[in-house]
Design a protein around this nucleic acid. Structure first.
Lengths: 205, 205, 205, 205
DNA sequence: GATGAATGAGTGTTCATTCAT
DNA sequence: AATGAATGAACACTCATTCAT
């Protein structure tokens, strides 16, 4: 090896920069290699193709986040079973959001790529999967709360929209607030808003 | 060609189809012309370039909607001045949303293009302008309400996020509900949610 | 049009030359275009892709030859039905071979391409189809003759081999004899050889 | 590496597999090395280049077969000198064919490579050398027989074609019959066919 | 003996755009 | 008003080969 792993690192760095600037589709492998100071062939020694380079940057943080979300949601589900789920658990919800934010801000660039720069790659629909996870969760919670509040089952569209909005909140944060501290502060207000909205749905008219 | 205006119309129709299917960037002028039964050169007689064709489809409905929004917001502002802005005006807000929905569903394809298929064109950031308009409005309203409720001024980020979310609601609807009737029905629940959230922000803790 | 169909003709000519020299796979579109004095893009105006250019040169003569062969074989089949098929019809067989030769030498380059330069294209196995046609024919003829000569049915492998050899004769000729007259002269001897071999198979041991 | 010779053996085995599957030209050294569990560099320690690897697999069996053929042909030549060469020597010819078949089937893969997978390598024309050997032989035999039968000298093209066909028979067999026993059985019929054809050439018209 | 890294020229193909006619 | 032809730069990707370590 001529440079001791430096080349791969350079390619990853150069790739990250290009992907963030232009998005997956518009990113040019030529540029990436040029900025890394290597020839095109070199890239193909380390990565199978364009998508593989993107995945190398993004795959792990993504899988991690899936796991973090699963963990949070299965835990919260237990609480609903135990008859809770009232105003009291705002703190739990906040805690979960903080965890997610903390993780996302640790890999700020990577989630930027996943959430807003992945068009054209196999990651382009992975927001949908986040929404799906979120949606399943809300469906269960909403059903339990409807029963308890003696109120009709919540509309499917509403469930889907709320799940979507929830995800969009994180995307929006990633796009508008660079510091984790700032994100956490904003999140407090947002959760307050959401809670008020959420419980408003289960009040008898 | 049979008629002078026919070719242009065909190009517009063919362009709309292609843009909707593949998005601005992936749309191929070759395809558009081929499906219109015309050669590439013809397109360049009627339109300056790719973007001009897109604009021809999209510009007018877009400007119209800007106007509709402006009108609604300046009107609502007056009501806040007059000391209203309580639960009573849900109906006003709903009415405004209905108007916007009505207009958007009249030009369903066009707004689909603007909101989700414009990446790569000069329209790709026009959602931001919607957000801007929305944001200015909320800023004013929120300030008045804070004063009246004797509560601290609302956070700038919150204002921006709520404005953004508001716009996303319309985007989401356009993507998930094809009929105007359905959209209006969903909107009722969403506004209820939003109102609860909104007023929740001005309650003393 | 700048040059009145000249470009397409030039591309076809240049393509034919390159394909004949290097075979389909090794032929370079860049070379073809350069020798034709045009840019790569020009080629893609006239042809869909590399294979399409090859096909444009080769498809028609190929289909024609399929037809010529079918015609010959269905005609010969009738004679076998009518109780003939003895030494007398050498002249018929020769006549058929002459026709095929005549056609092949009219499109000498094209069949050279099909038969020996098509590897990698969709034409690479079209010799097999020639063999198939030939094989079906021999199967029928051999069965009739076996019956008449009161001799066991001819081995499937032999039938296949003879069909294959028959085709190889034409390929060999195309590769070793440039003039049609020469080809026809050689063919007389070959057919004499084949006939002797063929009838030898039906003699009682 | 465990053993000095193991790597080379693995490369040879992996190379054989790849060449048989894809032919010389399409074979990828990357693949070969990968399947051998070695890096590209290793290959270049044992072999000069792609062609050298191919040669290492193929050269020896090829040279051997040249020798076997030479031996047979010089022997048969003596018999013609001694005034034989009539129907009686079918058995000799068969015997020779059997020997060749036996040798070829011992190195089945290798001859497959030489005869049908060598395009692009320096072996791609080695069929021609087989033909040449065969041709020289037939030239001599045919001349003697023409004299004895008081018939004009046989056409050069015919001689060449027959030599070519003779080789093609072996190629065809290698492609269509995997077992040596099967090959030998087919060969009996083919030789009968050829003999009938051959002697047919020396009958007075 | 063998590795891991890197080269560099090559491949077929796509695209918005131009322009003489 | 519209055509048909052509451009030229860009694209992702492949390959046999080299060589310091």
């Amino acid at each position: 090896m001529r440079n001791e792993k430096e080349t791969k690192a350079k390619l990853l760095a150069s790739g990250k920069k290009e992907f963030l600037e232009k998005g997956y589709m518009h990113a040019s492998l030529r540029n990436i290699c040029q900025n890394a100071g290597v020839t095109t062939g070199a890239l193909y020694f380390f990565f199978q193709d364009k998508e593989d380079l993107f995945a190398a940057l993004v795959e792990e943080p993504l899988q991690q986040l899936y796991r973090v979300m699963d963990q949070h949601y299965s835990q919260e589900l237990l609480q609903v079973d135990e008859g809770q789920g009232a105003e009291a658990d705002i703190s739990d919800d906040l805690e979960a959001c903080y965890q997610i934010i903390h993780y996302m801000y640790q890999y700020y660039d990577e989630f930027q790529m996943i959430l807003t720069k992945s068009q054209g790659s196999r990651f382009e629909h992975c927001i949908d999967r986040f929404v799906e996870i979120s949606e399943k969760h809300y469906r269960v919670v909403a059903d339990k709360m409807s029963k308890r509040a003696d109120v009709p089952r919540m509309d499917d569209y509403m469930i889907h929209w709320m799940a979507h909005m929830m995800i969009d909140i994180f995307v929006h944060m990633l796009n508008h607030e660079r510091s984790e501290e700032g994100a956490i502060e904003h999140m407090q207000y947002i959760v307050r808003f959401l809670m008020a909205g959420w419980f408003g749905m289960f009040e008898k008219k």
